[in-house]
Amino acid sequence: MNMMLVKRQSWNIGIVLIATILGAWQISRLPVFGSYEARTFLLGILPIALLSMGQAIIIIGGGINLAIGAESVLINCLAARFMVGKSFIACVLLTLLFLLVSILVGALTGLIISKSKIADIIVTLATSFILIGLAMYIQPSPGGGMNLTLAQMISGKGSAFLPPLITLILPLVVIWLPLYRSRTGIAMFAIGSNKDSAFLSGVNVDFTRIKLYAVGGLFAGISGIALTAITLSGSPFASISNTATLNSVAGAVLGGVALSGGVGGLTGPALAALILYFIPTILLNYGIDPAYSQIITGALTILVVLAGGLIRNRGKKN
């Protein structure tokens, strides 16, 4: 029983180990490590960690969303455009409204995939154009803002590292944990694992896929709000969204989510974001061109998927 748990969690344990080693390495390079530095860490990973979680949910359910970065940028631009100069209460209400928008955008994506029966890749490639277009339309150039009180509640201020930590962990506890335990959550794993068995077990595959993309969208939305709170502006760039999408896939895969679907969780991807963040920072410390981090990230993603595939294949043959 305990051995089984260890075996099943071995990936997460590995990720924690690597993140800890990299973290210790990074901290050892700093003259001091206090709550200010901790907050800097957290702000560095917050948007991408949330996005990786969103992508992870979708991959667990057997899909992939290449528009998830665009969705996050869209919410970022919406928030920055309409929250600038508004009161705290107004901004809170707008936050809720935009999170609802992100759920709807995700649900719509899932609906299109279910109805059209076109591959997830193609649909989300196309929607990524539409969403980025929308973002550019709403916030044509970088700018905007957010009520400072709200922003500080989300991302903290100075050495207050608790707010960003809460922003990171709260969605895990409030959204993912209950979802994981619910029938809907199990159904998401089920359609990713084996659609036919899921159907035979009484799962409505199409409706579950819509919910899957909606939850993924919500995480992208939270990521967009967090980005606004950190940068206090909206940046409508396709390059940002493309990189974010790429990193979200890398984060999910590094975090132990199987591309074939049905396997994984959200803690791994959140920790993987930490690793993806440490690699360039450490390189930078040593005066190495941070462009190398791109090589490492790319190669790491490939190797992880490769290793995962080989392990699974060996398991099958035995």
């Binding site: 790429l246 896939v249 890398a250 895969v253 591309l259 462009a291 190398y292 981090s293 791109q294 090589i295 490492i296 990230t297 790319g298 190669a299 993603t301 490939i302 998927v305």
Partner: peptide
Amino acid sequence: IMTLGMNAVLIG
């Protein structure tokens, strides 16, 4: 994943 990863590597 292979070609996305390859693209990242090549950019680097």
